[in-house]
Nucleic acid binder design. Structure first.
Lengths: 128, 128
DNA sequence: CAGCATCCTAATAGATACTG
DNA sequence: CAGTATCTATTAGGATGCTG
């Protein structure tokens, strides 16, 4: 990273965009979002309560909230079937899939390095 | 995903590991952690207050807390120089660097798709 | 300089009850 | 079934003051 030699090139990104990107990541890296993303990636289209059952420990409130958020961000498509009792299905959009793929690296990192992290924690705690 | 036909194959990951991984990601996907990770990746080794100045808007409390957390998790190395006034430097460990790389995908995704997300939001809000 | 301790507020998440 | 609404408990985080 040597952007001082090419002033107009990388430009260190403009601060406004950078903030937006941070906000995006903050939003999208949310625990429940990640879990729902994962499940919809695995299972395809699911109903509201099916997602609720598959996402261990999520409250109905958080489920609604997170799904609404993801829908608003264009990550999931919500389909309401006009039947009684109501049937609402959720699936990832193309954008949702692409985010899911983007997270593969982090996911893999976590799986492969969790041992090292726990080791580091143990060592740190032992030092105190 | 049909794990009932191949019991030992994908195994859907064991739930305990999965939870650990989720916790890991939740921890590591934290806003301040990401920002500090980014800055240390760019700048190499930095002092406490230097990081504070570079991370826009972070309070001293959050800086301390996040750095301590990252140190505990083995992401950063903290070096105390026994001088007066005190000089403490922080740099990424190998593990920290690897996490930083793992996040590249998400980072890139956010940069390239922020437009689509804002578009989706506008469309969603217009619908309400 | 690099922090720790304390207090206080604001945002978040859970539990619970109700509805088209 | 798929939510909404409300209340409460927990937590994250900021402001401030102090110290080796």
């Amino acid at each position: 990273m040597s952007e001082q030699t090419q002033p107009a090139e990388v430009a260190e990104i403009d601060p406004a965009l950078e903030r937006l990107v941070h906000d995006m990541i903050g939003r999208v890296a949310d625990k429940w979002t990640l879990l729902i993303l994962e499940i919809l990636e695995d299972c395809g289209e699911l109903r509201f309560t099916e997602i609720g059952r598959k996402v261990e420990g999520i409250s109905q409130k958080m489920l609604t909230q997170t799904l609404r958020q993801m829908e608003r961000d264009g990550l999931v498509k919500r389909t309401v079937h006009p039947v009684i009792p109501p049937k609402v299905e959720y699936k990832l959009t193309q954008l949702g899939h692409s985010l899911s793929y983007a997270f593969c690296g982090v996911w893999t990192w976590a799986e492969t390095n969790i041992g090292k992290v726990e080791e580091a924690r143990a060592a740190f705690d032992a030092r105190q």
